[in-house]
Every structure is written in C-alpha cells, then in structure tokens.
Computed example of a mutant assay.
Amino acid sequence: MTKSSNRSVERAFAVVDELAENGGGRVSDLADRLDMPVSTVHDYLQALVETGYVSVDENEYRTTTRFLEVGNRERHRLEIFKAVRDELETVAEETDEHATLMIEEDDQAVILAVQEGTDAVNLFAYPGARMPLHATAPGKAMLAHMSDARVSEIIDRHGLVAVTSRTITDPDVLYEQLKRIRQQGYAIDEGERIAGMVCIAAPVLDKSNQIRGAICVCGPRSRIDETRRNEIATVAQRAANVTQVNLDYV
C-alpha cells in the first residue's frame, strides 16, 4: 500500500472516529473539526455510506451498527471471551455490583464483556470502551504481569495522563504499586478513573503464565469498605482462576 493510500485510510477512520465521538455530524462541521476540505470529507462519507458503515438523514451523518457487528464477531472469536462463560454473571450476582472482563489492546484497557448486579451504578460501560491502563484496576492488574520493559514502552508512548485527581502519574509510584499487585494477587483503583468509585480486579493468566485479561468489580466508595474489599477481591480472584482453567479447554 502506498503512502497516499495509507493517508486515505487514516483520514477515513478519522472521519469515523469524529462521527462516533460526537454522535454524528454534517459535512461542513466535520471538515472544520478535522481541518480537511469539505469535498474530501464528503467523498469519504459517501464511500462509508455505500459500504453501510455510515448512514445519512437530512444531511446528518452517523455511524451504523455495522461496526457493532464487526466488533461482536471478533469478540466471540477471542478465547478469553469463551472461557469466561457464566463467571462474569456469577461475579455480578455475588457482589451486586458492576462486573467487567477487560483485555489489553494497543496499549489500552478494553472492555470485552459487562454484567450488572442488582445494585450496580450506571457507569456507561460497554463492550469496546477503551481507557488508559494505568488509571484502572484491571489495567494495573494486566500491567503488573507484563515485563518492566513493556510497561516502560507503554509509559514512553502514552505517558501517565491524569484522568482524575487520584490517577497515578508518577512512574515510580506505579512500579511500586505493580509490585504490590503481583504480591497480593489483585489490583485496586480508588477513584483513579471515575471519582467516588472503587474498582477491584484480578488478573487472568494462561497456562504459560501470560496475562490474558482481568475481571473487575466496581462500586461506590461508600459501599465498599475494607471488609467488603477483601470479599470482592476473593470473588474476582476465584472467577479469574476459573476463567484461567477454562482457557485450557476452549
């Protein structure tokens, strides 16, 4: 593929990202936000409409559920998604909180599956949502089982951006916490991505001891005291262990 072709693909996906981020848009607005000629944006949009990935109604363009179809196909191909089976639902039922299965992709934590317990807070979490690894309990659980060299590469590429006032932004503090996570077998984030929320995550390893993902439980700080944290950590670790065993038989 030529450089010009690469550039065209990058621009087309920039248009898609802009549509998804803003819930749609008109050609002129997209052109202004992306700093592209109106004619260029229009051509990309027309091509996306023809392929079914974008729809248009009264000059307002939006992404379609075709992307959801593509994502779901890939999700169901992943071994860890098959291996988690009923475990995530059990975690949500036992804790009454918000439970997620997350993986690492392109240096980010990505939600693969979500289950909500009876008391779960609406976190607007959905499969495919992405977030910084260092700012989440499952992200830190996964980082803890990567090599120091890999962690360093991720920090060099993306930095340690402050998502909230409690996000870890000092590499030395992060490395120290990753060491503690390996020792205790689970990770905690206390409002590091969402203020007022406590999240507890256990890593899912395969038989080669490679990190495959993390199972996480989130709830309001007011509900998750020290005793309950230990209980939730035990539930998450059990679910991660069952998922790890299931990976051998997928």
Rank of each mutant, 00 (worst) to 15 (best):
E10K: 00
L19R: 06
L19N: 04
V27S: 11
M36W: 02
M36A: 00
H42Y: 14
D43H: 08
L45K: 07
T51C: 13
Y53D: 10
V54C: 05
T63R: 02
T63P: 03
T65Q: 14
T65F: 15
R66N: 12
R73H: 15
E74L: 13
R75T: 04
H76S: 10
H76A: 07
E79A: 13
K82T: 08
L88D: 02
T90C: 15
A92C: 09
H98Y: 11
L101C: 14
E104Y: 09
E105V: 07
Q108M: 15
Q115C: 10
G117M: 07
N122I: 08
A125Y: 00
L133D: 07
P138D: 09
A144Y: 04
H145T: 04
M146V: 00
A149L: 02
A149W: 04
R150V: 03
V151Y: 08
D156G: 03
H158Q: 13
L160A: 13
T164V: 05
R166P: 02
T167P: 06
T167S: 13
I168F: 02
T169P: 13
P171F: 09
P171S: 12
Q177N: 09
Q184R: 09
G185Y: 00
E192L: 02
M197Q: 13
I200M: 01
I200T: 05
A202K: 03
K207M: 07
N209T: 02
G213F: 03
A214C: 01
R223H: 07
D225K: 01
R229P: 14
Q237A: 09
Q244R: 09
D248V: 06
